[in-house]
Nucleic acid binder design. Structure first.
Lengths: 181, 181
DNA sequence: TTAAAACATGTAATTAATTACATGTTTTAA
DNA sequence: TTAAAACATGTAATTAATTACATGTTTTAA
């Protein structure tokens, strides 16, 4: 039998998010639509089954709550076993490089010459896309981290948002380097 | 019935690589270990079945060759239908942002304060990893593109290698920004 | 007051991707 | 001369991930 779930990083991300505060599957899904999504992707159809798995393994538990008249919610939180597993994961080395999938850059690879008429429109299109994403991330930064106190309380969150912003800045700079002026 | 293979970008990458020159599955696998791998990942166990699929669809063909006494190779090349499909893919817009998976950045997210004793060793470890990758990519650049003529013949390839190098440079710079000096 | 958006939770079917299994040849360096 | 590395091609089993299906509640803005 192969080592079960040898990788499976999603479980650790969920443990980490629940360590910050108890949350519902819906809340976790939203987290992947914000900063987390810049460095890992998951949809609710992957998250809900994982929550069941983690609960079955005794690493999280849930409490049923109701909003309004009858909207049922499950508020999940870490057990001591779950917390231990999270700490172990954060502590171990991360020897793997960033895995990137970028369809646009791939298309670029198949442009043979600098005067290909498709090149400039492609660069323009991507520049617009990444400028919009950059503006979005900068907006997030001012709302999520309005002052130094907010940074001090969620330093790691601040770091990854800063990283995402710098990445987009450099992506746009790179595109502009090859944009005809 | 859902649109079959609506996404499936791997097939286009293979078509693009075969458009440059006829190649074997082994050659394609090697391409994913170099620059292509910076922007898309695939193993031979995904590539060989895809080659069969593309051939069955009439988009590529192969020619059997033998190296030495009896080592059989299949040299794949594009058919006109395959070339058409490749051109259509390159021409259509690429509205999706880069998908990134970075386990280290995720771990950082769960570091709550600037004085967490795990922070600096984590940053150091990643800096070493990315500096090594950067050195590797720069080495590639000098060997693959020794002069302007090489660049002019494979401009897209030059662009993506340049992009990969800048990305690693900025990653290292970002890590150093938070490294205690 | 009402329609749309957001909140909330799940499963089924399919596809993508990795890891492991399986086998053999040729070249290179010790 | 020989062992290791690289070349070469595949399939099986498993896991990861997406898309589609399925259903209902609450809040917000027109």
């Amino acid at each position: 039998m192969a080592a079960i779930g040898q990788r499976n990083r999603l479980q650790y991300i969920i443990l980490g998010l629940l360590n910050q505060r108890p949350q519902t599957g819906y809340d976790l899904t939203k987290a992947f639509e914000n900063e987390i999504g810049e460095f890992w992707q998951a949809k609710h159809s992957q998250i809900y089954p994982m929550l069941k798995r983690l609960e079955a393994a005794g690493e999280i538990t849930h409490e049923d709550t109701v909003t309004g008249e009858k909207l049922a919610k499950k508020q999940y939180s870490l057990t001591p076993a779950g917390h231990e597993k999270l700490v172990a994961w954060v502590t171990e080395p991360s020897p793997e490089l960033t895995a990137i999938k970028d369809e646009f850059i791939l298309k670029l690879y198949f442009i043979k010459t600098v005067d290909d008429p498709r090149l400039q429109p492609m660069l323009q299109e991507q520049a617009a896309l990444h400028r919009a994403q950059l503006a979005h991330l900068r907006q997030r930064q001012t709302t999520v981290f309005p002052d130094q106190g907010a940074i001090d309380q969620a330093y790691g969150h601040y770091l990854i948002l800063d990283h995402a912003i710098e990445r987009e800045e450099h992506y746009v700079d790179w595109l502009e380097k090859y944009l005809a002026h």
